[in-house]
Every structure is written in C-alpha cells, then in structure tokens.
C-alpha cells in the first residue's frame, strides 16, 4: 500500500507553484488588490506631487536653476536648516535615550504624566509651540534671561532654531527606543555583571549595541521631521536672511512673490538632500540590524 502511494507521488507532475514569475505565491489572498491600492495611494499622496515639484523646477533653464539654488542666501539657509536639524536630532538622541530609560527602568510618582507629555509635541500646533518657546527664550524670558546673563542669546539666533527643532523631534527617539528597552531582559545585564563587567562596560558593550538600531531609527525620524519644520521656527528664528532664515521659509518667501519655479527648485534641493541622508541612515540601520538578527 505504501509503495503504491510512493510511486504515485513520484510520477505526479511538479507542483503548479513551481512556475516562474516575479510574484511569489502566497497563501494570503488579495495580494493584487492590496498592492494596487497601496500603489494608488502612494502615487496620489507622494509620487505625483513630488514628480510635479521636480517638473516645476525644470521649467527653469539649467543656468537659471543653478543660480537659484546656489544663491548665497539659499546656501546659508541650507546650512542652517540641515545643521540645526542635525544638532537637534543629536540632542534628542542623547536625552531621548535618558527619558526612555527613566520611563522603562524606574517606577515613580507621575511617571504616567511624563509618559503622556512626551507625545505632546505631536499634538500641539507647531505655531503655538513656537510662540511659547520664543516667550521663554528671549533675553527677557523665564529661561532666556539666565542665558543672557552669560551673554548667550537664544531666541532670534540659530540656537533658537535648534531649540524649536529639538522640541518637535523629542517624541521620536523616546517612542522608538522605549519598546526595545522594555524588551531587553534584565537577565542580560545580570549575565554581564556575573561575568565581571562593570556598570559602564555593561552599558557600552551590552545595552547600547542592542539599542543602536532603534536609536538610529529615532534619530532619522527626528532629523527628517526637523528638516521640514516650519511653523514653530518662524517665530523663534527672527528670519534674518543669511543668518536665521531656514530653507522652508525661503520657499514661502518665493511663493509669496509668485516665483513658483524658484520655490520648486529649492524644494527639489531639500528633497534630494533629505532622500540621500535618510537613505544613508537606512543603510546604517540595515547593517546594524543584520548583526543582531532583529
């Protein structure tokens, strides 16, 4: 009986799924439909507007385009935008880790309130945040007056821009690191200690590498968010050309002068920069993810 079954199987034609195609056969139904919907959605919301942006910018001739995007005022704005966004994301990387650490590792009165406050920058209209921060950080503000004693001006300088971008980027690092940290068993730390590792060695060699992928994700998100931020920055920066003018504001200025092609050209520069930076961070992340096996 078993022999008969065996022969029948051997002579059976190869499985139909063996046929070649670029779509892998899956038991989950609805692949075609969901892919179509996803493509439509992404096209309407992302690809077509971005393509429109690039097309609009290409209405300019190449020398004109180059003149717009390499204008000293534009160059200064790139420096400020990317520099302040990078600094702010860096600050959030460090303090976000500490906030996440405190929220995961310790129990204390008011923990839930702090946990809820972390999300506030998501919900608050950015203009409100900008006005509040400006009031705090001017030379007469609650916080700014103390810095002013040390001759440090925060509002209406690049420092102010960085403060605003730090505020809006705070939740990203905290929210990406928090679940990963909660997932790390304390046993791993105990194992390191029993093997003779000091507290610092345990942190730097055991915890930090495990948190690195999520830290990078949080950094990338905070950075991306900061590059595009407009609402909160315009209040605290003072918007002085060459000094405290961010690229999104420069784009707004061009739009107000009906220079749509020029605005689109600057937009395209930001698009390319952001894309390259995020790609780099993603590659870095992919590399560190592969090592831990995710």
């Amino acid at each position: 009986m078993s022999e008969i079954t065996a022969t029948a199987l051997a002579s059976a034609p190869p499985y139909p799924s063996a046929k070649k195609g670029w779509v892998k056969k899956s038991v989950l139904p609805g692949f075609g439909l969901s892919l179509g919907l996803a493509a439509l959605y992404a096209s309407l919301i992302v690809f077509i507007p971005l393509a429109g942006l690039v097309l609009k910018a290409l209405e300019l001739s190449l020398p004109e385009l180059w003149a717009v995007i390499s204008n000293p005022r534009a160059l200064a704005s790139y420096r400020l935008t990317f520099g302040a966004a990078f600094t702010a994301a860096g600050i959030n990387l460090f303090f976000g880790l500490i906030v996440a650490w405190v929220l995961v590792r310790y129990d204390f009165f008011g923990k839930r309130v702090i946990d809820a406050l972390v999300d506030l920058p998501f919900a608050l209209p950015t203009a409100v945040a900008g006005i509040a921060l400006t009031a705090l950080y001017t030379t007469k503000g609650w916080v700014g007056q103390w810095f002013w004693l040390a001759d440090i001006k925060i509002a209406y300088t690049w420092l102010g821009v960085t403060v605003a971008l730090t505020f809006i980027g705070l939740p990203f690092v905290v929210r990406t690191v928090q679940p990963v940290l909660a997932d790390l068993e304390s046993e791993v730390e105990e194992a390191a200690a029993s093997l003779g590792a000091s507290r610092w060695q345990t942190f730097s060699r055991v915890l930090l590498p495990a948190l690195l992928p999520s830290l990078l994700t949080g950094f990338a998100l905070a950075f991306a968010r900061a590059i595009g931020e407009y609402g909160s920055v315009v209040f605290i920066s003072g918007n002085m050309p060459y000094k405290t003018e961010i690229t999104p504001l420069l784009i707004m200025t061009k739009l107000e002068q009906f220079d749509y092609a020029g605005a689109a050209a600057l937009g395209t520069v930001m698009l390319v920069f952001s894309f390259v930076l995020l790609l780099l961070i993603n590659l870095l992340q992919h590399w560190s993810h592969k090592r831990t096996g995710g």
Binding site: E187, V188, E190, V206, P209, A210, T292, G293
Partner: peptide, 10 residues
Amino acid sequence: FQHYALFRHM
C-alpha cells in the same frame, strides 16, 4: 539562566 541571556549582537 533559563532563557540563556546571550548577548544577541555578539
């Protein structure tokens, strides 16, 4: 440890 507690990135 019961659940090994190996360092997974090493």
